[in-house]
């Protein structure tokens, strides 16, 4: 998987759906898997793949909780994930010249 460049641009995060996932998770403490899926308008399997990619890089953490015999998955950015996302956003701003 491509590595983060020196200016913080991260090709893993930059993929459109993963950028949105990181943006959502950076805004709050945790988001439920179904809520992310609903906002992104993708299938569960597509979202799972993106989540796996981010987890493999150590950017995302998932917590499973069983409630009313239904398993819920909650997603959150790790400390490294927040730092990587914010660096990536800073790199994008640099590119726009803003």
């Amino acid at each position: 998987m491509s590595a983060t460049t020196d200016d913080g641009f991260d090709p893993t995060i930059h993929a459109p759906q993963r950028l949105r996932i990181c943006a959502m998770l950076d805004a709050v403490d945790q988001v439920e898997f179904g809520t992310v899926q609903e906002q992104l308008k993708v299938s569960a399997s597509v979202l799972s793949k993106h989540v796996s990619v981010l987890m493999d890089k150590g950017f995302l953490h998932q917590t499973r909780a069983t409630r009313d015999r239904r398993q819920r998955v909650w997603l959150s950015l790790t400390k490294e994930g927040k730092a990587a996302y914010r660096s990536h956003v800073a790199a994008l701003r640099e590119i726009t010249g803003a």
Partner: peptide, 23 residues
């Protein structure tokens, strides 16, 4: 993203807008 090209300024701005909207 085996070789993800860096975005143009317009693409970067669009990506930032998407991120902001998601937040």
């Amino acid at each position: 993203e085996p070789t993800t090209p860096r975005p143009t300024p317009e693409e970067a701005a669009a990506a930032l807008r998407e991120a902001e909207s998601a937040q």
